[in-house]
Design a binder for these strands. Structure first.
Lengths: 226, 226
DNA sequence: TATCGCAAAATGTGATCACAAGAAACCAAC
DNA sequence: GTTGGTTTCTTGTGATCACATTTTGCGATA
């Protein structure tokens, strides 16, 4: 598999390309890549100690998921944001996540509400501690745990694409952490699941999305950049 | 760019990988690839007279768009279908395409309805002539022309992913061509656009999707394969 | 005839290289 | 100091190769 004389570790079950992809994806979704940042193949290859090939494929994959942008120079960058795009992302999230939540409700295992509650408690603790990093992580975990309840969902990859597009601006929620957080839509969602009330769950998810994305102060967003 | 001594044509504006991707994508969306069909890198590379590299990247891109499937063997195949997946695809299409249609309505240029009408006329002519190939092509053109009216739409790539997933089963509509086609939802949509009635447009699009995908006889679909 | 085992072919993955296009640095002239 | 042009460096793209794994083909044996 490699021209390298070194013995590769036996955990080749996962391809290098997959490792690179997951690494980049994880960082993008949590806002560790700033908008406009240039991403080079050789740079990442050196950073991750792999050759250009798997990095190239991982980058192409992320570009096709709209997580990264391919400029006319063929250079890859972290996309910018516009007001219109931001609103469209919120609308698309509502459309797909409400759908996914309904599907999850149909497939729910009996401990779903408990698991979500545990995650939400950790999320609240993160807010209490002012730990924005943990807050972002637990928020991702909450939503994806819910949607993954419907196995092989068609909507899931699409939702992930939307989260990847929002990712670079996720760090802005740190500023408003604990400030604009008035109502806990997550507890509403958990209660709706326990009550088996699909409509209430849909309302909770929609409100959570609109509140969360609406709370980002528009003036502070690096909007409408080239 | 190439070790090949031949002089490459000057139209290198588009990369080889892009050409391969568009070629495969075009064929998948129109149902030219049958479900379960194995797709090999070397096979496509030879067929398209390119090296493995651009084919590999094009395949990975299509896999990440759920147009193709990566098996545990690392081999790439055209995905199968299940009843549940089929229903989920319809639901996701409704959620996103209704959204895209509303956005298109907001951005519409004055000749949008005329262009859609022209396409729909060609579509009707295709039905009349029993030309399933042209019917599929014009149906794609109708929907995508509408959704592309909103520039830089976030929903557009997601919708394309859904169409790619349905693509391999698109040929089944040929059998029911002209049979179950009772009402022309496209004319409804065009009328709604002319009347600037977003709700009517949303209803027309939803009905078009549900009618079209519901008309596929479930028994004939190669459903629930391994 | 069916089945097992081994060899051969096929296939995906990752590394490396050559080349072209673009970006950046540099230097000279005014 | 600023500008214009040339050189150097950086970067993306595609081809090719080596290797590991899987699949396939084939023949021997029961």
């Amino acid at each position: 598999m490699s021209n390298d004389p070194e013995e590769t570790p036996p955990d080749m079950l996962e391809t290098t390309q997959e490792r690179v992809y997951r690494s980049l994806r994880w960082r993008i979704m949590r806002g560790h890549f700033k908008p406009g940042r240039a991403v080079t193949i050789r740079g990442l290859a050196e950073e991750l100690s792999v050759s250009m090939t798997p990095v190239r494929e991982a980058l192409r994959r992320l570009v096709s998921e709209q997580a990264l942008e391919l400029q006319s120079n063929r250079r890859v960058t972290v996309p910018g944001m516009t007001h219109e795009k931001f609103r469209d992302l919120a609308d698309a999230r509502v459309a797909l996540e409400v759908l996914a939540a309904r599907q999850a409700m149909r497939h729910q295992s009996d401990d779903l509400a408990d698991r979500l509650e545990a995650i939400d408690n950790e999320l609240d603790a993160a807010i209490e501690a002012g730990d924005a990093e943990a807050y972002i992580d637990r928020n991702i975990a909450f939503h994806f745990t819910l949607y993954q309840e419907a196995p092989g969902s068609v909507a899931m990859p699409l939702i992930e694409s939307l989260w990847l597009q929002i990712g670079p601006f996720m760090h802005l929620t740190r500023q408003s952490l604990g400030v604009t957080y008035t109502e806990d839509r997550h507890t509403d969602a958990i209660a709706a699941i326990r009550a088996n009330d699909a409509e209430a769950l849909a309302r909770a998810i929609e409100s959570d999305i609109r509140d969360g994305m609406g709370s980002l102060p528009r003036e502070q967003l690096p909007f409408d950049e080239p």
